[in-house]
Nucleic acid binder design. Structure first.
Length: 716
RNA sequence: GGGCGAUUAGCUCAGUUGGCUAGAGCGCCACUCUUACAAAGUGGAUGUCGGAGGUUCGAGUCCUCCAUCGCCCACCA
């Protein structure tokens, strides 16, 4: 036997990785349907599946993507080697709002704006943009070694996916879990769309709190600019200070733009602890106020427009932005003698658009809402019964808590980029009607024929929340029957609420089964110093650059070793460098062992009773147990340590005298031992460092499968 | 206002159900170009495991309190 000439030193990842990936791809083994049978000829029967969280098709991969690709690939390769029909299904997400925001930034750079374009033009442009990104992204995922089945790849805007999403929408309506309602929603004045509660972030601010004379009352507010037409004053029914006034009593109140008639409302929403215990309400721009108005059947009026400017009701202030108007209004209140005092140290949290950080301006809008509590209750039950298990106990607790008091979910978005909501809106009475086949011609409520298509699109999470069963072809495709429920959902803990829990709720709702049996949540990938990566800070580490420099295998190890589930990880290039060294170490170990074997003509059989060999088998069992229990951080470190400090440092060193001694038979036996041990080590390391292990495997003079990728996991 | 996590070598972090004479990588010191490997090897220094109590034969690991940092949740006019 002779060593291949390309078995050079040191190990060069670039020379091998791309080539190996192409070989894997053309082998067809990423597709579970093509996997070879067991050595004794029995076919693979047990299935295992994982759906890839579809990356947003709006940019290149970041370190977080590299982490999930690595983790999921490890599990997939492990299960495949254990003889399962392993399916890892890849996809891409149109990522509605997120993508539109990215695209709007691009437009802004080009001095363009979406408000100068038709919806159709915008949609078309973003479509081309995502198609380009999607392709680019797939190449990057391949670069990271992902052994996913590309033949089953899905996009959230594929026709069959959209059809399933529409069916769910209809079913929710039939089951009375969907309604169209006028409600206060989180409106972003910049992006011109409503947002779900999850898409609002809060910031603690200290702002002035104004005490204003309102007839016989003193009210307190942080937002005087909303108060123009306030004509209801609300106090708690049990507030003694106001016991002398009666519910429904009216007062003539000198107000900002003249005298108005105010009505007293006694409602439990009034908080005696807050300010003076008396407040006026602005139902159009506050959810609480709107709820009060509904309870008492009060009038409401829009004060601020969608762009955050004051409407004509503001009189002389009309057309001004809130920010500009506030000090001027305060000035006028002062002139009118209505301003009593200002508390400068009022601390409260201000709702902001999670993308642009502008203040959310609540607006009343007709939107589609999903009633969450029935869905949430089922999800809680499934989690409590452990139909869905969480690898990290604390995320389970967080999940259960979140599911306890879920508000209804606004799934309407006023953006072009997304799945259009299949509905018509009556222009006369405002009734919204589901219209899957474009055959609703007149209003089901008032009979009017003036119907318009609902211009809105779905919240992107409404469609991605159906991803597991939709990608597998619910309800009748073979993949659905075989692979659903999936085994593993691996994703970032930051989208536990956005995605994971929505999938559990919608999955249970649609299929009566949980969408996945186990949830593994990883943390955020930060930079070497533990600072969150961001483009503005300029500390973004590109996984592709790191991979080019150190090799994908090294990057993968750096992402896994010491990275406990759910905890944030600092990605330090030095750490990646350490695993490049390890790759080189393994390379040289393999060279040495193959060199020894190459000098022997007839290798004897392995002595399976050999103690060193048995120790390795025990070690394999331990590592197998770690992987099965999602302790990749331990498994990877142990394998690293075994290969370097047990096998290379001790076993190989102690073998040298035997190998080079006079007893040729003993040398041959020892060579066989080392060779078999090398193969086992390659196998158990393969899920973590697939490229180098496969490269070495293909240089072996004797192997038990054409590709290491489909070799069988060692066991006693 | 509620909840959660972290605090271990100079730095970044592991340490699964209590058994650790506490580990890894990087960094540091000394010596070695010994044909698997200088992207290496051999040897070495460095820690009252945030603080105070407690449970235990035994605690980095469990309990209580405290301190510092970080995160999440919550319709506080």
């Amino acid at each position: 036997m002779k060593m291949s000439e390309k078995f050079n030193k040191p190990y060069d990842p670039k020379q091998n990785e791309e080539k190996i990936y192409k070989q894997w791809e053309s082998s067809g083994y990423f597709n579970p349907d093509n996997l070879p049978a067991f050595p004794d000829g029995t076919p693979r029967e047990q299935s295992w599946s994982c759906i890839m969280p579809p990356p947003n098709a709006n940019g290149s991969l970041h370190a977080g993507h590299a982490l999930f690709v690595t983790l999921q690939d490890i599990f997939t390769r492990f299960e495949r080697m254990r003889g399962k029909r392993a399916l890892w299904l890849p996809g891409a997400d149109h990522a509605g709002f997120e993508t539109q925001v990215v695209y709007e930034k691009k437009l802004a750079k080009e001095k363009r704006s979406r408000f100068q374009m038709s919806r159709e033009e915008l949609y078309k442009e973003i479509w081309d943009f995502t198609q380009y990104n999607k392709q680019f992204m797939e190449g990057q995922i391949k670069h990271l070694g992902a052994s996913c089945d590309w033949s089953r790849e899905k996009f959230t805007l594929d026709d069959d996916i959209v059809q399933i999403v529409y069916d769910t929408f209809k079913k929710l309506s039939d089951d009375k879990l969907l309604y169209r309602g006028l409600r206060s929603i989180n409106w972003c004045p910049k992006h011109q769309t409503g947002l779900s509660n999850l898409e609002v972030s809060y910031e603690e601010r200290t702002e002035p709190f104004y005490y204003i004379q309102y007839g016989p009352f003193t009210i307190a507010t942080a937002r005087p600019e909303t108060k123009f037409s306030d004509k209801y004053i609300v106090v708690h029914p049990d507030d003694d200070r106001y016991a002398k006034y009666k519910h429904g009593q009216t007062f003539d109140v000198p107000w900002i733009n003249g005298t108005i008639t105010a009505t007293l409302i006694k409602d439990k929403a009034g908080n005696p602890e807050m300010g003076t215990g008396a407040m006026t309400i602005t139902p159009w721009h506050s959810e609480i106020d709107f709820d009060i108005a509904k309870r008492h059947n009060l009038d409401y009026e829009q004060i601020i427009d969608e762009r955050g400017k004051l409407l004509p009701v503001a009189g002389e202030f009309a057309g001004m932005s809130i920010k500009d108007a506030r000090p001027k209004i305060v000035e006028k209140l002062k002139e009118l003698g209505l301003l009593i005092k200002i508390d400068e140290k009022y601390e409260h949290s201000v709702p902001l658009c999670y993308k642009c950080k502008r203040e959310i301006e609540p607006q009343l809008k007709e939107q589609w809402f999903i009633k969450m509590s029935p869905l949430a209750n089922r999800a809680r039950e499934a989690i409590e019964k452990k139909d869905v298990k969480f690898v990290t106990e604390r995320h389970k607790r967080i999940a259960l808590h979140w599911l306890e008091n879920l508000e209804d979910w606004n799934i309407s978005r006023q953006i072009a980029w997304g799945i259009p909501i299949p509905a018509k809106i009556c222009q006369d009475c405002g009734e919204g009607m589901i219209d899957l086949n474009n055959d609703v011609k007149k209003c089901q409520k008032c009979g009017s024929k003036k119907l318009e298509k609902d211009p809105d699109t779905f919240d992107t999470w409404f469609s991605s929340g159906q991803w597991p069963f939709a990608t597998l072809g619910y309800p009748d495709k073979n993949d659905y029957k075989e692979f659903y429920p999936t085994n593993l959902m691996e994703t970032g803990h930051d989208i536990l609420f956005f995605w994971v829990l929505r999938m559990i709720m919608l999955g249970l709702y649609r299929t009566n089964k949980v969408p996945f049996k186990t949830v593994y949540l990883h943390g955020l990938v930060r930079d070497a110093k533990g600072i969150k990566m961001s483009k503005s800070k300029g500390n973004v580490i590109s996984p592709l650059e790191i991979s080019d420099k150190f090799g994908t295998d090294a990057l993968r190890m750096a992402l896994v070793v010491g990275n406990t589930p759910g905890t944030d990880l600092n990605l330090d290039p030095n750490k990646v460098g350490a695993y490049r060294k390890f790759a080189n170490k393994l390379w040289n170990v393999a060279r040495f062992v193959i060199m020894q074997v190459a000098e022997i003509d007839n290798l004897p059989n392995l002595d399976e009773e050999n103690q060193i060999y048995r120790n390795l088998q025990n070690f394999v069992d331990e590592v197998t147990d770690d992987i099965q229990n999602y302790r990749l951080h331990l498994a990877s470190e142990k394998i690293y340590h075994y290969i370097w400090h047990t096998f290379a440092d001790k076993i190989l060193e102690e073998s040298k005298p035997i190998l080079q001694g006079d007893d040729k038979k003993a040398a041959a036996i020892q060579a066989r031992l080392l060779f078999e041990m090398l193969k086992i080590q390659l196998k158990i390391l393969h899920p973590f460092m697939p490229f180098i292990t496969e490269t070495i495997w293909q240089e072996l003079p004797e192997k038990d499968s054409d590709f290491l990728m489909v070799a069988f996991w060692p066991k006693k």
